[in-house]
Write a protein that binds this DNA or RNA. Sequence first.
DNA 1: AGTGAAAGACTGTGGTG
DNA 2: CACCACAGTCTTTCACT
Lengths: 156, 156
Amino acid sequence: MLDVLQRPVDRLDPLDRQIIGCLTRDARATYAVIGDEVGLSAPAVKRRVDRLVADGVIRGFTALVDPEVLGWTTEAYVEVFWEGTPSPLELRRSLGEVPEVVGAWSVTGSADALVHILAADIPHLEEAIERLRQQPNVHQTRSEVVLSRLIDRARP
Amino acid sequence: MLDVLQRPVDRLDPLDRQIIGCLTRDARATYAVIGDEVGLSAPAVKRRVDRLVADGVIRGFTALVDPEVLGWTTEAYVEVFWEGTPSPLELRRSLGEVPEVVGAWSVTGSADALVHILAADIPHLEEAIERLRQQPNVHQTRSEVVLSRLIDRARP
DNA sequence: AGTGAAAGACTGTGGTG
DNA sequence: CACCACAGTCTTTCACT
């Protein structure tokens, strides 16, 4: 009863967590291998994975690609300052207009949003930030260009 | 000649890029399906994927998990200010001591590093930042707690 | 480097406790 | 909810182009 109020986390048992652990380490692991590791048969693992995907616990599977190889060597975090008090929806729509924006979060502190930008090089980055500044209501930006990637841990 | 000077990107032909595209969209896609999409047989796709993994172009495959479901609902970006001029190696060692740190980058601007922290809740976050501040040479921190995730695009 | 064929492994469904 | 069994599919190797 009252399933809508039950947070999804409550539906994850230790087996689910172990399976998620296996898949975050190697998304191409076979159900049989995962089953060996968690002590389940392959069909049982498949049913759980299907359920986790259907429930939105697992949003998808992706390959981790070395960004340098793709030629996107330039990265920056940009604090965005807004005129007035924008709704998350407005922010999402406005920031989403710039394709180089790969991540964005509304944050506490003086800035309204923190935006993660990937670009091919410095001129490309500069141009992307310029387009960001031209979005309606964007008042000011403060950029920190990434010099080197120190840590990039997969999910816990 | 002079292969060491050749950037890895130069070794990627359009077929490789298409295959990488398929795998970033769905890391569990079968070789046969990828082959259909890019116009290659399954064995040919497998050989290319194996080579991309061996060369480090593809660093691995992972599941995208909804962080809220795991109970890590609290997220912050923390600017770290250092005493003196630390090497990237020192930074990596020092920041890596705090397990809640899931990402870290050395950056331009007044801060020395930008650190991404995931925690279960605000007390947990506070404790993690406290441990960060106690690392040798960490002089000051400035935190921005994430209120909401606006955009989280998969790779470009 | 790619193809096609073949053996073995894996997936995915249906039946059962 | 998990297991077993089985039919269909996929992976992976090998010989050939």
